[in-house]
């Protein structure tokens, strides 16, 4: 979020509330639940870090939404670095994988039941995401974010299917033994 806020200031300085509106629009349905305060908290942090500078506009109250924010040279360097970066969020599958392994080893729970519960939860989330995708008009850039979320959940559900297939065999074998 910090980097995105900085990048949105790269072209020209902006009022806090305008910045918030632009972020909200870019996020589409996901932006609707965005807490207004969070953008201002981010701006305050960025200012403390010397990446943005604010100016209090004449005649307006001294609040983050009314102040005008601009990038400092350090902020500009950080935006350039962010744009050329190719890092990517890591899906944390190891934790769930280890949960199943630990549950089975310690006989704490049936791994297949854990997988089933997880699958139901992800199905519900996918339902929310997919319905939001359907509600977006064709060619909406905000819809792309929802599309990405839906595709990831689909991949996770396929992985859970593989987990179920293999763990149900492991469980069967240990019961036979």
């Amino acid at each position: 979020m910090q980097d995105a806020v900085l990048a949105m200031l790269a072209k020209e300085p902006s009022h806090g509330y305008l910045l918030r509106e632009r972020l909200r629009r870019a996020l589409g349905p996901l932006g609707e639940s965005m807490n207004a305060g969070q953008v201002y908290v981010t701006l305050t942090r960025l200012e403390k870090a010397g990446l943005v500078a604010s100016e209090h506009a004449e005649g307006l109250p001294d609040r983050p939404d009314r102040k005008v924010y601009a990038l400092t040279p350090a902020g500009q360097r950080r935006v350039a670095a962010w744009l050329s970066e190719v890092s990517w969020p890591k899906p944390n599958l190891a934790e769930f994988h280890l949960k199943l392994a630990a549950a089975a080893a310690g006989r704490l729970a049936d791994p297949v039941e854990l997988v089933d519960a997880q699958r139901r939860e992800l199905m519900r989330r996918l339902g929310e995401a997919q319905r939001a995708v359907l509600a977006e008009p064709d060619g909406s850039t905000a819809g792309l974010l929802l599309e990405g979320i839906a595709l990831r959940l689909q991949a996770d559900l396929r992985w859970l299917e593989a987990c179920e297939r293999v763990w149900s065999k492991v469980v069967d074998e240990s019961e036979d033994a």
Binding site: G31, E32, R124, E128
Partner: peptide, 18 residues
């Protein structure tokens, strides 16, 4: 059953991080 069971809005569920 899927419909109506999700908790929180989309933004909350898919965690925007700050």
């Amino acid at each position: 059953r899927l419909a109506g069971h999700a908790t929180g809005g989309l933004g909350e569920m898919f965690g925007l991080e700050y």
